[in-house]
Simulated assay, not measured.
Amino acid sequence: MTLPQGQGGPPLAITAVATFVTVLTGSIILRNVTSYPGVEASVYFVPSFLITYGSLLLIFTMGRIPYSRPQIIGSFVCAVFLYYFAIVRLMRRRKPCIAVVAVGEIQPLLNEEYVDWRILASPDTPLNGAIAVAANLWADLPDEWDRRLADFALKGISVYHSKHLLESLTGRVELEHLSESTFGTLSPISAYMALKRGIDTLVALITLIVLFPVLAALAIVIRLNSPGPAIFRQQRMGYRGQPFTLYKFRTMTNAPPSQDQRDAAMTKDSDNRITSIGHFLRQSRIDELPQIINVLKGEMSWIGPRPEAMVLSRWYEKEIPFYRYRHIVRPGITGWAQVSQGHVAEVNEVKSKLHYDFYYIKNYSLWIDILIVVRTIRTMLTGFGAK
């Protein structure tokens, strides 16, 4: 039962001790769910705490133990945010020492600065303080290496598949050919896709009702700030490769009719077309709010790969193999690439962005969506990646 109004004392103390044990248990579960450092640990910290806090509520309810519901909710919220902003940051500063088997291409791993790497030139090379070993487990390793890796595992030393480790460290999946796919299937989980569509619609409807006066006021300010409509409309490539009209608050002056369409669709650093109020709207991401209409129409989701202008999308499809695969899920107002990399336009940068999109599709779930929401709040507060 919940704590009656005005009562405290022992029930509050019991709740405090129980939540402390719950957080500790959630941390232990997280360590056992994933052994890979980097992004993968961030993805699973929310479900780990949901399991332990859900179990705690079940124990209190079934045992009819008085407890403080606000205290439990507050503890859960604090645990999630503190874990992300403190513990994850600490893990990134404290470089783990990992040894790499020098068979095959290892340079992409060595380029990651958040790890102190040790190269194992032969099976007899000592670990020199390394706490784990990375190797290409798909490669045709010599028998002596197979035996050595088995010895490491028997001694309790983690042996990582180098490709999976690189994905966890970077939050990217480098997939450019169907034969390279490690997804198991090229289609994301349809059950979660249907659930997500329902959540998107409900949240969009509530948000539109609550923010309508603010959106109307912003539209008036934009019209007064510079000539042109308040809402910017542009054809974008959408879900399953179907074009749709995207809505945004206008943040730039209208492009002259003679301007090249591809150049007009790109936003460059310190772009002089951005209006005075446009800088604030872009930095805070408020300019994206009219896309609530796109979400209600089923053309977009709150979270997913950002939709590109049609002229840019066709250009990228010609230049980048397997680019169209990003359209397998609905495009989003915010996404994994946006909170990890920021805004890009050039082909080389888009290739990197595409790898972030592939990572999101591969790990398509409620948990990575929650992580993106947390990172989006940080992005809105810091203006990361805006142009």
Rank of each mutant, 00 (worst) to 15 (best):
S162T: 08
L205S: 14
R324M: 09
Y83L: 01
A265L: 07
E144S: 15
K268T: 12
L166N: 07
I206L: 15
H279P: 00
L141F: 09
G8R: 12
F232G: 04
E288T: 14
Y316R: 02
L175D: 00
R64W: 10
R273A: 08
P142A: 10
A265Q: 00
M252Q: 15
Q338T: 02
S352D: 14
R223P: 00
E167F: 08
A135V: 02
Q242R: 12
Q234F: 05
R94K: 13
M380C: 15
P321I: 01
D263V: 09
P126G: 09
G198R: 10
D151P: 01
P331E: 00
I65V: 14
L215R: 05
G342A: 09
T245W: 01
A194S: 10
V33A: 11
W145S: 07
V33W: 15
V295F: 08
P96Y: 07
N294C: 11
I361V: 14
S35C: 09
V339W: 02
S55G: 07
L215Q: 04
Y84R: 01
P11H: 14
P10F: 14
G104L: 05
F232R: 04
D369S: 11
A13P: 02
L149E: 03
Q291C: 06
R250V: 01
G184F: 09
F81Y: 08
R330L: 12
A153C: 06
D116K: 13
S35Y: 06
Q234T: 06
W315E: 14
L3N: 10
G38K: 01
S122E: 10
T182F: 08
L137I: 01
V46Q: 03
L195M: 12
Q235E: 14
I28E: 14
E349T: 05
E349F: 09
N32S: 13
I286T: 04
R31W: 05
Y239Q: 02
Q259A: 15
P126T: 10
G9F: 07
I277G: 03
A216I: 13
L57C: 04
Y364A: 11
A102L: 03
M310P: 00
